[in-house]
Design a protein around this nucleic acid. Structure first.
Lengths: 252, 252
DNA sequence: CGTGCGATTGAACTATATCAAATTCGGTGG
DNA sequence: CCACCGAATTTGATATAGTTCAATCGCACG
């Protein structure tokens, strides 16, 4: 259990980093040596809370996770979604105090990596330091796109755009991906929190997008039935994800 | 002209970094040695454009600058404002392709620093590397707050919040700040682009905020007449700016 | 003195929110 | 296997925050 499990856990991080940066075999080796403190988290549960002073960084192993903030009124805004291999609070290496929360959407496995371990690794290995920096900066790039999305796009475009991003990011991790099916495990309320729309309106927009033949779904199993159409509807261009030449010959 | 001017240009960068990180005298020394290629930019002009492949990083010396993105429809969303001492495209050190543009609001002086110079400095001086990382991460934190602002807050709160952020950031640089006066050199249209609102609505919200006695203005010269009230109206909490203990005893 | 941009006003319109109820669905216990 | 439960989805009706369009006004500047 130990060796192979651990190795596959580390593999998720390596796969993510290699989507945006090149790593040498020795760098991969070093990453595999990182100490991971594993934890299972139930669905819809806080993993890190706003105000926390973290001494570890969180690595997603399985499941779907989001970051969020709330207004004084209690309205929740989801800031980003995170997939296996992501380090959603890498910033805590430098920013003492969490300015937002991290919560699970599905039931999730996460690992915590001590800041010390990451810091010394980055100091030793400039290639890894660069890959981590890139990971954090792509994160910021996605935030910028979300500001645009929520600030300027119509409800339908917003949701279509979110689907596009999700589709691309999910498929990159799931290279074996059969058809154009992906699992979108969030509720319509969560979709609303991510796009700044009410549940009711999300529901109606979904009906419209389905009616246009862009997507189909049975429960949380979505199929993109018209990828070019969905991209058009969402005003989507993958540039902001800053992917290296796409692996597996996937083109977006 | 040269020595003292150059020094005061570098000072702006140092002041900014010291708002969020501690620097030793030797680190400051090293920062002062950075080569700066100076350039004057007229108001409302692109400094860096989406799609560019930068080999230099842009340092703001005087004036006000913004980052922005546009939708396929041509709608513009301002992503952030930048003050003297800011490095608004630090990310270009690691992300080859600009995913957004940088433009001046007022007429502006900027300096370009070769990536090479920054990279070797950061490699030599871990303290500076950390300060730069923090600068970029605070940037991302501000993006998160803006997603919340645009996604969940009402028009009035949005604009009040933007004013609060602007007020805090401007005053930190302008320690001698007499009263609570700040220069907000943007038009109402630009305010709208930053908050996702139409010009007409911005105008009406401004009248309301003025009517509530929170701010006054003669042209672009704004005075915050009720700072606690403005903070309340904007649901503002400065935590997300990740400031070190505030200098000059300023409390926000 | 125009000229033109930015600020302001008014009126009509609409995208989206809110409220409230009904329906579907995935599980869970009997 | 069925009945039931709570949560998620869907629907309908009404309300509203914010947009759009179209003028007008006020200036700063040449």
């Amino acid at each position: 259990m130990s060796a192979s499990t651990v190795s596959s856990d580390h593999a998720r991080l390596i796969i993510q980093l290699e989507l945006i940066a090149d790593l040498t075999e020795s760098e991969r080796e070093q990453l595999r040596a990182l100490p991971l403190r594993l934890r299972k988290v139930a669905a819809r549960t806080d993993i890190v809370s706003e105000g926390d002073q973290a001494v570890e960084t969180c690595l997603i192993l399985d499941g779907l996770v989001c970051r969020y903030k709330t207004t004084g009124e209690g309205a929740r805004q989801i800031l980003s979604f995170h997939f296996p291999g992501d380090l959603p609070d890498l910033q805590s290496l430098y920013l003492e105090c969490m300015d937002h929360g991290i919560a699970s959407i599905t039931s999730t496995r996460v690992a915590f990596i001590p800041h010390q371990a990451l810091r010394s690794l980055a100091a030793r290995e400039p290639g890894i330091a660069a890959a981590l920096a890139k990971h954090a900066l792509v994160d910021a790039s996605i935030f910028r796109e979300w500001i645009l999305n929520v600030g300027q796009r119509q409800a339908t475009e917003r949701i279509a755009h979110l689907f596009c991003e999700f589709y691309v990011r999910a498929r990159l991790l799931d290279s074996g991906a059969e058809q154009d099916s992906i699992l979108l495990p969030f509720t319509q309320a969560e979709l609303g929190d991510a796009t700044g729309l009410s549940v009711v309106h999300v529901n109606r927009v979904l009906q419209k997008i389905r009616g246009q033949g862009l997507i189909e779904n049975k429960g949380h199993n979505y199929t993109v039935t018209d990828w070019p159409g969905l991209q058009r509807a969402g005003d989507f261009n993958a540039r902001y994800l800053h992917l290296k030449a796409t692996p597996h010959g996937l083109v977006f």
